[in-house]
Amino acid sequence: MFGQLFISGLATGSLYALTAVAVVVVFRNTRTINLAQGDFSMIGAFVALVLIKSFAFNYYFALAGSVVFCIGLGILAERVVMRQIADSDWLTLFTATLGMYYILHGVAGHFWGRDTKAFPLTFDPTPINVFGGIISQGHVVNMAWAAAIGLVLFIFFKYTKQGIAMRAVTDDPETAALMGIPVRFIVLLTWGMAGFLAAFAGVLIAPIIYVSPEMMDEVLIKGYVAAVFGGLYSIPGAIIGALLIGICENLAGGYLGSHFKTVTAFAMIVLLLAFRPHGLFGIQKRREV
């Protein structure tokens, strides 16, 4: 029972990690807590659902369509909303993302309705045996996707010119500009990456939590808390935080009862903010204000 709960918690946690990493990359390059991150995912899940149901796309083409759409959505959010107020204080930026949150909720509700919709199962529902635990194949597939995306991000940040430039902008935007790095373009790229991650987060979790305008609200909060585990700065820290939340809430749900699941996640938030507000690994705020 423990192994089973642990692995399925790990699987859910790996999906939270997609949201957590997106929160981190946007925050460290723009000082913006993006409250609309979950809604990018929600829109992405709806887009995939529409492509499958109305246009008879197969799953992979629907996923690809959702990824393209969400990258566009991220870029649009930057160009139309965030760039206009880029030099404002953090509260203005935060409020603008809250505005996008409500707009996207409203748009989704208007076009697709407020009721919860099932997402077609994309994997064989027969559970399989992994290291002695019986788990759903969907969990295995989700973990594999999350790991693959993690690998892509690692290569991007470590070996590509734009990826290293993105880290340079995180480090010191003024000096980055002196090197000829186009800082606004890098910020645009950051929002595009948030959209990319959002599409996977939304489509992969859709069969588990179903599709509705509110589907990502709780996931966003968990992703945000996971990001705080990494001091809103460290990507590995955010991933570890996300996995911890997934595992702990699943264990609590299994042993204490399902109504303890969400409570556990929120209790972790309270404890973390009370005792380690700069993140689990003691990462301090690095940039002078």
Partner: peptide, 16 residues
């Protein structure tokens, strides 16, 4: 750039 390696710092000098 404190969080970039020496090699990465040099690479950023040639960004343009």
């Amino acid at each position: 750039f404190k969080d970039l390696t020496v090699a990465e710092n040099l690479r950023m000098g040639a960004y343009a």
